[in-house]
């Protein structure tokens, strides 16, 4: 038994390491290109270690775009979107998963249906709505909707709420808890891993959202990095080095955030001891 266990562990390590190597290649590539002198960027097969490494692309980034300002905008947007999503989505998901009310299944189908139409055809009517609301010269279209929820996250959280045993809720009802208390005190803590996933996705989504800012942003003061990054690809000269350098600076915080958030992917304490 024990040797078999060790054997399986070794296989697991081997698989993880092989997979890890292939999955880290894109990142190494980005790092290496960011430090490459111009003439080595296009060498094929690629040269992995720049000779000599240069930091000039990082300087170029600051020459080309107001990087600090755009960074600030991006962080602000990410925080607002996370706050909005965490406010609206768990509530709606809980209503879909755990409560019974007239119209629930119908509204759930509608919720799913909102994801089924390619956004390209709803983009312009949506623009008209934001114009009517007077939001055009603001950042509001880029974060306010998250306070009203989005279908993907609601669906995801609903699925997680549904995996929680009903006995828990029934017991709490017996003790006189309100539905909101059950949601807040019992169900929500049990789906912290899913909440973490939603946080990561929202953060990433805001970080990489390009089309929204493209349509709505009308000044550097509201411009996020995802949009600014494209300035390195003008018609005649793509600044690949600078693009990579800026990408690297842009994704490092994402990686750090992920690294620290992933530790919430552990079994909820309450759940482990639940039925045992």
């Amino acid at each position: 038994m024990n040797t078999k266990r060790i054997f399986l562990r070794i296989i697991a390590y081997i698989l993880v390491i092989i997979g890890g190597i292939s999955f880290i290649i894109p990142f190494i590539w980005t790092v290496s290109t960011a430090f490459k002198p111009d003439e080595q960027i296009f060498l094929f097969p690629p040269k992995w270690i720049p000779e000599p490494p240069t930091i000039k692309h990082f300087k170029e980034v600051f020459e080309f775009i107001p990087f600090g300002l755009l960074y600030k905008n991006t962080v602000l947007l990410a925080l607002l979107n996370i706050a909005g999503t965490l406010f609206s989505c768990p509530l709606a998901a809980y209503a879909f998963a755990k409560l019974k009310w007239p119209g629930r299944d119908m509204l759930f189908i509608i919720t799913l249906a909102t994801m089924m139409l390619p956004p390209q055809v709803t983009m312009i009517p949506q623009f008209l709505i934001f114009r009517r609301l007077g939001w055009l010269n603001t950042m509001l279209p880029l974060w306010m909707p998250s306070f009203f929820g989005n279908a993907f996250n609601i669906f995801l959280l609903r699925q997680f709420f549904l995996t929680l045993p009903k006995e828990l809720d029934d017991a709490a009802r017996m003790d006189g808890c309100s539905f909101f208390d059950i949601f807040w005190r019992i169900n929500l803590p049990l789906i912290i891993p899913a909440i973490t996933a939603v946080t990561i996705f929202t953060f990433m989504g805001t970080w990489n959202n390009f089309i929204g800012p493209l349509i709505y942003v009308r000044s550097y003061n509201a411009m996020p990095l995802s949009l600014g990054l494209r300035m390195f690809q003008e018609a005649y000269s793509a600044e690949w080095g600078a693009l990579m350098a800026a990408s690297l600076m842009m994704i490092l915080p994402v990686i750090i955030v992920f690294f620290f958030l992933q530790k919430y992917f552990v079994q909820g304490i309450s759940l482990t001891g639940l039925k045992g």
Binding site: M123, L128, L214, L227
Partner: peptide, 20 residues
């Protein structure tokens, strides 16, 4: 207002603005 991105992307921005 800085126009970033490629040809098609700029066009989407302009089209929305013109339509709006």
């Amino acid at each position: 207002v800085p126009l970033t991105g490629g040809f098609d992307e700029r066009k989407q921005k302009l089209l929305s603005a013109v339509a709006g």
